[in-house]
Design a protein around this nucleic acid. Structure first.
Length: 481
RNA sequence: GGCCUGUUGGUCAAGUGGUCAAGACGCAGCCCUCUCACGGCUGAAUCAGGGGUUCGACUCCCCUACAGGUCACCA
């Protein structure tokens, strides 16, 4: 058994698309699950679409997600170079071999002379093979004159069948296939050609890619056959659709990996979510690290049907990652947000603890803690809560009771405060909720807070606590009388 | 339009001839409880339609519908 080798072969044309990221992930997972190698190859044969900095985005994304390539332009490897523009001569050499074998031919037609009705979009015309009829002498003369030309693949008669690990057996009539261009007039190979040559030269055993390539696959097989090369295993991946059911694309404003990060998603969460789009593990597991995924990854779990990107589920997953995160790490990440919301001396570590199980995004922290430095203005209607059996009257007596018994609240610490206040409630014939709801409201001025009344007291400290309670009493009295 | 592929609840999905058709997100309700969240529990909600094959179809075959992909000197 030869070693499994997979490859991620992006074009440096801009941001990292979610679909591309998933392809990279699956290729990595498959290689790792088989103890094989994962190769990064840059396919930059389209000079027109090349974007400055795009290669760095690819490196950054792989680094950030932990998808580590064993070979590639930056780390080298036995099959270098790993950038197609640096391999130009290979392709030309191979294409010429194909001409010798009668499986390809030079074509001197310009881009516009493709065929009679090329512009009829309903039924696009195939190239009419007029250059195939050129004599040796005519070709030599054209070459002599320096006419630009492309090299086209000569598609033979018959039909071509192949097996995809996900989609099964697929057969197409060769008549459906055009004599595609292998070498462009600029001397560079097309994707379709370079891809085949490099996959073979780099001993790639499993080709994984989006299923938009499913219909091109027969052409590749014909190429492998013309060369007499072994055909790799194919694993085509289902598409990822946006929430409208359309193919994910930058042009429709759909998110790239970078956009997700900017929106506040954690790289691990985004990667985890993307893994689940189009693949499911044998068990019910939904949350796992890259390493854990590599252990259970299996081609059988890849589905055939396209899936829609669901931000709600990703958001949930993001929250799960915060919940499960090591506290020190979370504290480090949350600190800037806490600092922005809280200028006073409140214990920032405590705040981080409170907020940790409640956020889906770090940016939610600010609003969550906006009451800490000072209670915001609020409506006394907040004191009314049906389930808590509270209203402004009960709140007033509860708060007065707390104020009048301030002396009994010696230790300003959550557990002690809770004990003291519930005892007080019992004395006064109040429910815990009636007393504590009132206190929490008085201290925060908000219907929800990331902690309970007594935690809030501990957080604010004695002076601030009674200051706010006094203010609340005044406010309530003013409105009730 | 030709060719190729797909179609299980709103979404992600398990399921490979015999299941009361898993699970997760979301939604609703309940419990827990000093609010919210967490956690626990419950619920509503699905096999695109029609024909076959079979003792028995979500599972196999055919047709229809719908969706997507592809038909570049782009990848």
């Amino acid at each position: 058994m030869p070693q499994v080798r997979t490859r991620f072969a992006p074009s440096p044309t801009g941001s990292m698309h979610i679909g591309n990221l998933r392809t990279a992930l699956y290729e990595y997972l498959y290689a790792k699950s088989k103890g094989g190698a994962f190769v990064l190859r840059i396919e930059d044969t389209d000079r027109a679409r090349y974007t400055e900095g795009a290669v760095d985005i690819i490196y950054d994304t792989l680094r950030l997600t932990g998808i580590k390539h064993d070979e590639g332009p930056d780390v080298g490897g036995p099959y270098a170079p790993y950038v197609q523009s640096e391999r130009k001569n290979e392709y030309l050499f191979c294409a010429e071999r194909l001409i010798e074998r009668g499986a390809a031919y030079r074509c001197f037609c310009g881009k516009e002379e493709k065929g009679e009705d090329a512009k009829n979009a309903e039924q696009p015309a195939k190239y009419d093979r007029r250059c195939l009829r050129l004599s040796k002498e005519e070709i030599a003369a054209n070459l002599e004159r320096g006419l630009p030309y492309v090299i086209r693949q000569l598609i033979p008669e018959g039909r071509t069948a192949f097996r995809d690990e996900v989609f099964g057996e697929i057969t197409v009539e060769n008549a459906e296939i055009e004599d595609q261009v292998l070498i462009k007039s600029d001397g560079l190979p097309t994707y379709n050609f370079a891809n085949v040559i490099d996959d073979h030269l780099m001993d790639i055993t499993h080709v994984m890619r989006g299923c938009e390539y499913l219909s091109s696959t027969p052409k590749y097989n014909l190429l492998y056959e013309a060369f007499g090369w072994d055909i790799p295993a194919y694993i085509h991946l289902p598409l990822i659709l946006n929430e409208n059911g359309e193919k994910l694309s930058k042009r429709c404003g759909d998110a790239s990996f970078n956009d997700l990060i900017e929106r506040g998603f954690l790289p691990e969460a985004a990667l985890n979510y993307v893994a689940l789009l189009g693949w499911a593990p044998p068990d019910n597991r939904e949350i796992f690290t890259l390493e854990e995924m590599a252990e259970v990854f299996d081609v059988n779990g890849i589905s055939k049907s396209p899936s829609k990107f669901d931000y709600k589920k990703l958001t949930w997953l993001n929250g799960e990652y915060f919940k499960n995160m090591d506290f020190e790490k979370f504290f480090g990440m949350a600190f800037p947000y806490i600092e922005r919301a809280v200028k006073g001396g409140a214990d920032k570590r405590k705040l981080a603890e409170m907020v940790k199980t409640r956020v889906s995004f770090l940016r939610e922290i600010e609003e969550m803690l906006d009451f800490v430095d000072a209670a915001p203005p609020y409506d006394t209607a907040l004191y009314t809560h049906k389930k808590m059996k509270t209203n402004p009257e009960t709140a007033l007596s509860a708060l007065e009771a707390v104020r009048d018994n301030a002396g009994r609240l010696a230790v300003f610490e959550n557990a002690a405060l809770y004990e003291a206040l519930t005892a007080l409630a019992a004395e006064k014939g109040m429910k815990n909720s009636q007393l504590l709801w009132s206190v929490r409201t008085a201290l925060s001025g908000k219907p929800t807070t990331p902690c309970g009344a007594t935690e809030l007291m501990e957080l604010l400290g004695r002076g601030e606590t009674f200051g706010r309670i006094e203010a609340a009493i005044t406010k309530l009295k003013g409105e009730l009388c």
